[in-house]
Simulated scan of single mutants.
Amino acid sequence: MQSTTLPAVLAPVISPFNSNGRIDVAKLLKQCQWLKANDVGIAIFGTNSESNSISVAEKLEVLEKLIIGEVDPKTMMPGTGACSVDETALMTSAAVKAGCAGVLMLPPFYYKDVSDDGLFAYFSEVIEKVGDSALQIYLYNIPPMTKISMSLGLLERLITAYPNTIAGMKDTSGDWSYTEAVLKQFAARGFRMFVGNELFLLRTMRAGGYGCISSMANIDPRRIAYLAAHWEDSNAQQLQADIDTLRACLVPFPTVPTMKAVIAQFSNDPEWARVRPPLVSLTTEQRKQMAIELGKIQFSIDDLS
């Protein structure tokens, strides 16, 4: 495995939309800078970015503008996976040429019950089309959304065939037994495991994982990054429990609209609440209840302006 400049915690950065429904690049740039200042890396075009509601052309434009705006590509892991090999290769090539430290790649998610042979062929074709030794792929395992799970056998084939390219995984299966099995089989070979839920962060670090890429890093970056850096400290379990409390109070609300509502509240910018169809923003009642729940745990974001 190649070395990496990626931090242990990345945020699947939520995408701000302007009144015309386009990504507000200036606002996104500011958010990325705030996340970086809180020791968190940048995973644009992930699930929480509403990536599958954003065209490849728009993604390419936004990526270019973020790089021009001095978002450090060495801390970036853009989502590049799509259902077609060509679209995935196009987006992936752009990320590699921009100097991004890695890419987060979904499997082709439209067809269900596909075989390991089919999945291997997909990733293999993308790698061959990109044809760049700098490419670092982090496989995105999120079966609750894709209905596709990446077997240990598939991972073995990919790592064996492309040991310098298949760098790791974001696992959002929610199945700790699977996460643990991947870590036991591949962590010693340099395979970097990012868990997709900060609830598993301490457990993952203790089992040899690399970190997490979690929606909550959009609103609680500093504490999550601190735990990832101090997981061996004597108070690590309490740090994890404190972080868990925030997710527990937000679980009743839909994830993406809620992340945006929290940022809108603490930045005093209601435009942050916009989402793209088919998602819908929180209702007035939901926003009020969310604010009550956050108040109960005295949560705030003091430096978000």
Score class of each variant (00 low, 15 high):
M169D: 00
G102T: 07
A43Y: 05
E271W: 10
G168A: 03
P78G: 06
K97W: 11
A217M: 05
Y110S: 00
R189N: 15
I44G: 02
L239C: 09
A207Q: 11
W34Y: 10
A225D: 00
I23N: 07
G69K: 04
D24I: 05
L294F: 09
I213Q: 01
M193P: 02
R247I: 13
Q237P: 05
L239P: 02
P144T: 08
E50P: 01
Q240N: 07
I42G: 03
A248H: 13
P16F: 04
A11D: 06
I301Q: 12
E180Y: 15
L104Y: 12
I159R: 01
V13S: 03
I243G: 00
V71K: 05
C32V: 01
W176H: 07
L279C: 06
P254D: 08
F194W: 05
K36Q: 14
K129M: 11
L63Q: 08
M150Y: 09
A273I: 11
T4H: 06
M77D: 02
D242H: 12
V262W: 02
M205G: 03
D233K: 13
A241G: 08
I263T: 04
A273Q: 13
G118A: 14
P278G: 08
K30N: 14
L106Q: 01
F191T: 01
A101P: 00
D244S: 10
